[in-house]
Design a protein around this nucleic acid. Sequence first.
DNA 1: TGCACGTTTGCGCACTCATGCAAGTGATAT
DNA 2: ATATCACTTGCATGAGTGCGCAAACGTGCA
Lengths: 124, 124
Amino acid sequence: MNCDCDLEDRLDPDLFRALSDPNRLMILSGLAHCCDEPRSVSEVATELPIDISVVSRHLSALRDSGVLAAERTGRSVRYRVRYSALAGLLRGLADAIEGCQQGCCGSDCADDSGSVLTTVGGGD
Amino acid sequence: MNCDCDLEDRLDPDLFRALSDPNRLMILSGLAHCCDEPRSVSEVATELPIDISVVSRHLSALRDSGVLAAERTGRSVRYRVRYSALAGLLRGLADAIEGCQQGCCGSDCADDSGSVLTTVGGGD
DNA sequence: TGCACGTTTGCGCACTCATGCAAGTGATAT
DNA sequence: ATATCACTTGCATGAGTGCGCAAACGTGCA
């Protein structure tokens, strides 16, 4: 597919996988409301009904997928949300998706090119 | 948390769950490059190395999560990408995340309000 | 009515994953 | 050095999921 929208490169299963668990989303939401103020593992764990070892694993998963950043201070590890990176990823994905709709790809799929024009603005 | 960014409402585990499988993402990417031209289950299945019954299940999952729209024409079911809905969801989520960073929430987390200003522009 | 086609669903299997507990690691304080 | 604190890492278990095969379902055609 001769397309310039880079959609398949932006569709990362690992990122969505990290965001597919309710407890991980609660962790992300809680950290996001901290206004860039980092939180330690034990602080995050106090707000959740799961074992602190599980929280540690969830935080590591969110860090590995690029959602959170970790920083060691003394004997505690403080996590914070990578706001700009995450928002940028989501916006880039939104742009790539809408770019595909407007016919960025070549001739392999657009077997009737007129439909592109007739459906602009009328979709979902 | 007295926050007006609606972050936890936008963080839907089911949506991310639907996007967490590589084969489902290949289906979505393939359909997105069709420029709003619907594809039937069997047409989608020809481009994937998995059984058509599995493809049918994947398409249903993507439809249930709001990513795809389905329409029956004769004895075939044609799926298409809900470009605007999906892009809008992602942009709304990006806005909500960045809104949290800039201190939309109240006093429960921002225990030193000065850090909000000093970290603007210097994040991740 | 009978048949062919496209799609969906039941079922079993293999695999992944979230969870809790316990043990291990690293850093600080006494 | 020893103890304590914060976090991480095996390990086992139960739940969830992707997969293929076969049967069922729905639709259109002869």
